[in-house]
Protein backbone atom coordinates (compact mmCIF):
# COMPACT_ATOMS: atom_id res chain seq x y z
CA UNK A 1 0.00 0.00 0.00
CA UNK A 2 1.25 3.50 -0.71
CA UNK A 3 2.32 5.94 1.97
CA UNK A 4 -0.36 8.10 3.61
CA UNK A 5 -1.17 11.50 2.19
CA UNK A 6 0.98 14.31 3.38
CA UNK A 7 -0.78 16.79 5.60
CA UNK A 8 0.23 19.58 3.30
CA UNK A 9 -1.41 17.82 0.39
CA UNK A 10 -4.78 17.67 2.03
CA UNK A 11 -4.80 21.26 3.15
CA UNK A 12 -3.72 22.51 -0.22
CA UNK A 13 -6.34 20.42 -1.91
CA UNK A 14 -9.04 21.66 0.39
CA UNK A 15 -8.08 25.22 -0.39
CA UNK A 16 -7.93 24.55 -4.08
CA UNK A 17 -11.31 22.97 -3.99
CA UNK A 18 -12.95 25.78 -2.13
CA UNK A 19 -11.39 28.11 -4.66
CA UNK A 20 -13.31 26.27 -7.33
CA UNK A 21 -10.83 23.69 -8.58
CA UNK A 22 -12.94 20.60 -9.24
CA UNK A 23 -9.99 18.35 -9.95
CA UNK A 24 -8.82 19.00 -6.42
CA UNK A 25 -11.86 17.15 -5.17
CA UNK A 26 -10.94 14.20 -7.36
CA UNK A 27 -7.53 14.03 -5.77
CA UNK A 28 -8.83 14.71 -2.31
CA UNK A 29 -11.40 12.00 -2.34
CA UNK A 30 -9.21 8.90 -2.24
CA UNK A 31 -6.98 10.42 0.39
CA UNK A 32 -9.74 11.30 2.75
CA UNK A 33 -11.73 8.27 1.84
CA UNK A 34 -9.16 5.83 3.03
CA UNK A 35 -8.81 7.50 6.38
CA UNK A 36 -12.49 7.90 6.87
CA UNK A 37 -13.16 4.34 5.94
CA UNK A 38 -10.61 3.03 8.38
CA UNK A 39 -11.85 5.24 11.16
CA UNK A 40 -15.44 4.31 10.49
CA UNK A 41 -14.65 0.62 10.57
CA UNK A 42 -12.74 0.93 13.81
CA UNK A 43 -15.50 2.96 15.22
CA UNK A 44 -18.27 0.66 14.16
CA UNK A 45 -16.45 -2.36 15.47
CA UNK A 46 -16.28 -0.76 18.89
CA UNK A 47 -19.93 0.15 19.11
CA UNK A 48 -22.23 -1.50 21.57
CA UNK A 49 -25.92 -0.98 21.29
CA UNK A 50 -26.28 1.44 24.17
CA UNK A 51 -23.35 3.77 23.54
CA UNK A 52 -24.09 7.32 22.57
CA UNK A 53 -22.79 8.12 19.21
CA UNK A 54 -20.18 10.71 18.49
CA UNK A 55 -20.06 10.90 14.77
CA UNK A 56 -18.63 14.36 14.87
CA UNK A 57 -15.88 13.06 17.08
CA UNK A 58 -15.06 10.50 14.45
CA UNK A 59 -14.97 13.00 11.64
CA UNK A 60 -12.88 15.29 13.82
CA UNK A 61 -10.48 12.50 14.48
CA UNK A 62 -10.01 11.94 10.77
CA UNK A 63 -9.76 15.64 10.22
CA UNK A 64 -7.01 16.01 12.79
CA UNK A 65 -5.12 13.16 11.29
CA UNK A 66 -5.24 14.54 7.83
CA UNK A 67 -5.02 18.29 8.04
CA UNK A 68 -2.03 20.34 9.11
CA UNK A 69 -4.19 22.16 11.55
CA UNK A 70 -1.69 24.85 12.27
CA UNK A 71 -2.37 26.11 8.81
CA UNK A 72 -6.04 25.62 8.86
CA UNK A 73 -8.70 28.22 8.81
CA UNK A 74 -12.25 28.01 9.89
CA UNK A 75 -13.40 27.91 6.30
CA UNK A 76 -11.24 24.88 5.62
CA UNK A 77 -12.77 22.98 8.44
CA UNK A 78 -16.21 23.64 7.13
CA UNK A 79 -15.21 22.38 3.75
CA UNK A 80 -13.59 19.39 5.21
CA UNK A 81 -16.78 18.44 6.89
CA UNK A 82 -18.70 18.89 3.71
CA UNK A 83 -16.33 16.53 1.96
CA UNK A 84 -16.56 14.04 4.78
CA UNK A 85 -20.29 14.15 4.74
CA UNK A 86 -20.31 13.20 1.10
CA UNK A 87 -17.84 10.44 1.68
CA UNK A 88 -19.67 9.06 4.68
CA UNK A 89 -22.77 8.95 2.56
CA UNK A 90 -20.92 6.97 -0.05
CA UNK A 91 -19.37 4.59 2.47
CA UNK A 92 -22.59 3.83 4.24
CA UNK A 93 -24.71 3.54 1.13
CA UNK A 94 -22.21 1.19 -0.42
CA UNK A 95 -22.22 -0.85 2.73
CA UNK A 96 -25.98 -0.99 2.69
CA UNK A 97 -26.00 -2.03 -0.95
CA UNK A 98 -23.54 -4.75 -0.29
CA UNK A 99 -25.71 -6.09 2.48
CA UNK A 100 -28.29 -6.77 -0.13
CA UNK A 101 -25.76 -7.64 -2.83
CA UNK A 102 -27.51 -5.41 -5.23
CA UNK A 103 -25.77 -4.47 -8.43
CA UNK A 104 -24.47 -0.97 -8.55
CA UNK A 105 -26.62 1.56 -10.21
CA UNK A 106 -29.91 -0.16 -9.59
CA UNK A 107 -32.49 2.27 -8.50
CA UNK A 108 -33.75 1.19 -5.11
CA UNK A 109 -37.36 0.35 -5.53
CA UNK A 110 -39.83 2.26 -3.44
CA UNK A 111 -40.19 1.12 0.12
CA UNK A 112 -42.93 1.15 2.68
CA UNK A 113 -43.28 3.92 5.18
CA UNK A 114 -42.19 1.61 7.97
CA UNK A 115 -39.06 0.76 6.16
CA UNK A 116 -38.38 4.40 5.47
CA UNK A 117 -38.87 5.35 9.08
CA UNK A 118 -36.93 2.58 10.59
CA UNK A 119 -33.81 2.83 8.45
CA UNK A 120 -32.62 -0.12 10.44
CA UNK A 121 -29.75 -2.30 9.36
CA UNK A 122 -31.99 -5.24 8.63
CA UNK A 123 -33.91 -2.94 6.38
CA UNK A 124 -30.97 -1.60 4.49
CA UNK A 125 -33.22 -0.79 1.52
CA UNK A 126 -33.83 2.31 3.59
CA UNK A 127 -30.27 3.53 3.30
CA UNK A 128 -30.15 2.70 -0.36
CA UNK A 129 -33.52 4.28 -1.13
CA UNK A 130 -32.46 7.33 0.81
CA UNK A 131 -29.36 7.73 -1.29
CA UNK A 132 -31.36 7.59 -4.48
CA UNK A 133 -33.97 9.98 -3.16
CA UNK A 134 -31.34 12.45 -2.08
CA UNK A 135 -29.92 12.45 -5.51
CA UNK A 136 -33.27 13.45 -6.90
CA UNK A 137 -33.71 16.09 -4.22
CA UNK A 138 -30.41 17.69 -5.07
CA UNK A 139 -31.79 18.32 -8.54
CA UNK A 140 -34.66 20.32 -7.11
CA UNK A 141 -33.04 21.94 -4.12
CA UNK A 142 -29.33 21.37 -3.59
CA UNK A 143 -29.08 23.07 -0.24
CA UNK A 144 -31.61 20.81 1.35
CA UNK A 145 -29.70 17.80 0.11
CA UNK A 146 -26.58 19.23 1.68
CA UNK A 147 -28.34 19.78 4.96
CA UNK A 148 -29.34 16.16 5.00
CA UNK A 149 -25.83 15.04 4.17
CA UNK A 150 -24.27 17.09 6.91
CA UNK A 151 -26.86 16.26 9.56
CA UNK A 152 -27.53 12.63 8.80
CA UNK A 153 -24.31 11.36 7.31
CA UNK A 154 -21.74 13.49 9.05
CA UNK A 155 -23.81 13.84 12.23
CA UNK A 156 -23.41 17.59 12.55
CA UNK A 157 -25.63 19.54 14.88
CA UNK A 158 -27.95 22.26 13.62
CA UNK A 159 -25.46 24.94 14.63
CA UNK A 160 -22.54 23.20 13.04
CA UNK A 161 -24.49 22.71 9.87
CA UNK A 162 -25.40 26.36 9.85
CA UNK A 163 -21.71 27.26 10.13
CA UNK A 164 -20.70 25.06 7.27
CA UNK A 165 -23.45 26.26 4.96
CA UNK A 166 -23.21 29.84 6.05
CA UNK A 167 -26.87 30.22 6.86
CA UNK A 168 -28.80 30.77 10.05
CA UNK A 169 -29.69 27.85 12.31
CA UNK A 170 -33.37 28.56 11.77
CA UNK A 171 -32.88 28.13 8.06
CA UNK A 172 -31.22 24.83 8.73
CA UNK A 173 -34.14 23.69 10.86
CA UNK A 174 -36.64 24.63 8.19
CA UNK A 175 -34.64 22.99 5.46
CA UNK A 176 -34.25 19.88 7.53
CA UNK A 177 -37.95 19.52 8.15
CA UNK A 178 -39.01 20.09 4.61
CA UNK A 179 -36.31 17.88 3.23
CA UNK A 180 -37.55 15.07 5.42
CA UNK A 181 -41.10 15.46 4.18
CA UNK A 182 -39.94 15.45 0.64
CA UNK A 183 -37.72 12.43 1.11
CA UNK A 184 -40.38 10.42 2.80
CA UNK A 185 -42.70 11.03 -0.06
CA UNK A 186 -40.06 10.20 -2.63
CA UNK A 187 -38.93 7.02 -0.91
CA UNK A 188 -42.45 5.68 -0.55
CA UNK A 189 -43.20 6.14 -4.21
CA UNK A 190 -45.13 9.38 -4.17
CA UNK A 191 -44.46 11.72 -7.05
CA UNK A 192 -44.28 15.49 -7.07
CA UNK A 193 -47.19 17.23 -8.71
CA UNK A 194 -46.31 19.48 -11.60
CA UNK A 195 -47.18 22.95 -10.45
Amino acid sequence: MGAGPSLRDVTQLLRAWSAGDQSALDKLTPLVYRELHRAAKRYMARQQADHTLQTTALVNEVYLRLVAFKEVSWADRAHFFAVCAQLMRRILTDWARRQRYQKRGNKARHISLDEALLLSPERSPGLVALDDALRVLSGTDPRKSQVVELRFYAGLSVDETAEVLKVSPETVMRDWRIAKLWLLREMTGGKPVEV
Binding site: L53, L92, W95, F152, G155
Partner: peptide, 11 residues
Protein backbone atom coordinates in the same frame (compact mmCIF):
# COMPACT_ATOMS: atom_id res chain seq x y z
CA UNK B 1 -27.37 9.68 12.46
CA UNK B 2 -26.45 7.25 9.75
CA UNK B 3 -23.35 5.96 11.46
CA UNK B 4 -25.27 4.78 14.43
CA UNK B 5 -27.73 3.03 12.18
CA UNK B 6 -24.88 1.25 10.51
CA UNK B 7 -23.17 0.49 13.78
CA UNK B 8 -26.22 -1.29 15.05
CA UNK B 9 -26.24 -3.33 11.91
CA UNK B 10 -22.64 -4.17 12.35
CA UNK B 11 -23.25 -5.35 15.86
Amino acid sequence: PALEVAAKGLA
